[in-house]
Design a protein around this nucleic acid. Sequence first.
RNA 1: GCGGGUGUGGCGGAACAGGUAGACGCAAGGGACUUAAAAUCCCUCGAUAGUGAUAUCGUGCCGGUUCGAGUCCGGCCACCCGCACCA
Length: 801
Amino acid sequence: MFERYEPNRIESKWQKIWEEEKAFAATTDYSKPKYYALVEFPYPSGQGLHVGHPRPYTALDIVARKRRMEGYNVLFPMGWDAFGLPTENYAIKNHIHPRIVTENNVRHFKNQLQMLGYSFDWDREVNTTDPNYYHWTQWIFLKMFKAGLAYKAKMPINWCPSCKVGLANEEVVDGCCERCGTPIIHRQQTQWMLKITEYADKLLEGLDQVDYIERVKTSQRNWIGRSTGAEVDFALAGTDDKIRVFTTRPDTLFGATYMVLSPEHPYIEKYAGRILNLDAVRAYQAEAARKSDFERAELAKDKTGVELKGLRAVNPVTGNEIPIWISDYVLMTYGTGAIMAVPGHDTRDWDFAKAFGLPIVEVVAGGNVEEAAFTDVQTGKMVNSGFLNGMEVADAKKAIIAWLEEKGLGTPKVNYKLRDWVFSRQRYWGEPIPIVHCEKCGYVPLSEEDLPLLLPEVESYEPADDGSSPLSKMTDWVNTTCPCCGGPAKRETDTMPQWAGSSWYYLRYTDPKNDTCLASPEALKYWLPVDWYNGGMEHTTLHLLYSRFWHHFLYDENVVPVAEPYQKRTSHGMILGEDGEKMSKSRGNVVNPDDIVKEFGADTLRTYEMFIGAFEQAAAWSTDGVKGCRRFLDRVWKLSESVTSAGGYSKALETKIHQTIKKVSQDYEGLKFNTALAALMALLNEFYRVGSVTRDEWRTFLLLLNPVAPHITEELWEQSGFEGRCYAQKWPVYEEAKTIEDTVEMAIQVNGKMRGTVMIPRTADKDTALAAAREALGDRLSGTIVKEIYVPGRIINFVVK
RNA sequence: GCGGGUGUGGCGGAACAGGUAGACGCAAGGGACUUAAAAUCCCUCGAUAGUGAUAUCGUGCCGGUUCGAGUCCGGCCACCCGCACCA
């Protein structure tokens, strides 16, 4: 028994009991209804837990605890996304093996999480760096390789000169390395690639099947960037060659007055001999190559370019010869690296035509192409367009595509912004790629029996400036035999990116100790899909898309029983420093959760982070706010002295209690933890106002608060002599009829303005209510009443002249 | 530029389906207890006028619909977050 509310002693007492009782273990009784709640597993960094972590964890802990009380078999797991650069860099700097660094960090993180009393099923903990885990990461990779989705390609990659590592497009922010901020440079390198583009349509269509918050769906759609149009061939005058372009506006073909090639377009080399101003062209190419992505984006507004003098193209519909230019606003990496320019109806082409005095022809009426490009596709009608004249844009599109197909000049085409995923990293601390290269047989996969391919011990983890992985120095390990022909072969020395292990971890939780497959079909069938997945907005276009891609692939391979991994996806807002800025060491506004737990207790931290504001929005930390939540829990503790031996709900509070059960139940589901807590605080204030609490009122209150503040409620539960454990009880139920008050205070308005209130029975008829209202207003109601409005339970309004 | 979001007291934020704007909490002020402080408890707390009951104004701005608008409609403004020359 504790005399006073001493959170630290109470919390460690209950954490120990829960662990011993295996209170929150998911069972393998697959006959029960299941609920799979998932939070993104953390990267166990050296800094330890950040106050941002507990926000989503507490939110889903509340949901998980509530679901258990409602009778579900709940899977609420936790693990470690432990491969990655910071650990490796730390290891290099301090000469400690990354495995040791990881172990230490994991231990620290786990301690911190356990101190917060989360109901994670720790028996199912996974760690991406564990060979028993990455065995299956490698296995999935082999499946992809065999399905032709993994390939090696020499290509320009985003190279971070500081991290000495290749990055996926998604990891480049403003032309700089997402992690360290160094401007990236382009570099030709042979890389493993995954054909995520092959799944673009499935990833897009799958979004219609799931319940994700809209902004997540939108950014996934934008990232995939599907656009439909046509590829059209323009003859290169005086040759048999054609320049192929992609356009979403084939309807404007009559308005194509020039063409633009990307500076890297191969035709420039091919026809260099015919180009009259080759020096100027070379100079422009050199300049474009020198610019970083960042500079190219910065200078987006000012169009630059050079005409390829001596080369002309032929517009396939008009037969006119048109000039060909090169400009860096045309990207070699999208479409065909060449465009037809329609300055009348494309803003970029318009800017370019204006800058270089190129002709602008109107082919869709409705705007003024001398003033600006007219890009509206809804209203305009075709003009100056031969057989298309008079058509709506949409019809013109169909007609021209049919015509092009018939003549063999073009075909319908869909393009995506999404690029294939650069999958190899020249680093040590990642999953080895289970492929060997044989002179005779090419790239050969290891056989499944040889998995896991263990990460070898190396002397130095330092990557080389030439971009080769630390593993390449391990000649004993690198030199091997070909699984195919038995001849000499070399192992792949690149490793997988951090996104590999996190792409499928939710599958492993369903059956984490299985050593014959990544998880048993029974476990997958029972637990999938994840019912509710919460994670950061910053993972929307990286982790979430990658992980859906892997899952769709595994579905096609009949490994998983459902097409989409996550039924529902929500995102929490960031927790900012007290100054409203992002927490960072340099600003000195970092709050350490350990300090808060030590001073106020884990229940206070949990309560505060749920009370801080709307879950999906960013919120600034406030130490005074934390105190307020501690004060609330102190008042809860003290209220136990006022609990009487009476049962049932008292007359005075019955309605309020039913209302609160309803409100709290609904708000926990809807991520509205702040208003759920406000309702509990209001109920607590009522208890104090009344001065005593019946046993049943107290019982209900503790149950409602339990998911948010599990330790204090468990302790009070025991001290009050209730049966069993608080966490193991049934969730309280309310009766709808009892949430409605018999007597209500009604607002009285005159001409829509508040003039007073009156207490009347909820079910009062109109005459009774109006009479009561007239009496309440007395002589403040004057003039001729032209209309009387009575909405029972809501409003009384007199319209007076 | 495109897409998404947000504008409500001194602050964080409430407000069902159009129906008493500001719940709940913080801060602040006053009081009780105390030798004192902390803690705790009680009261006040959108603005203006008034001793007061009360009146007028008030949810970014302008207009509209309605008996009644923070909420619906039209038009703006500001800020935040994504994406950004994707043809």
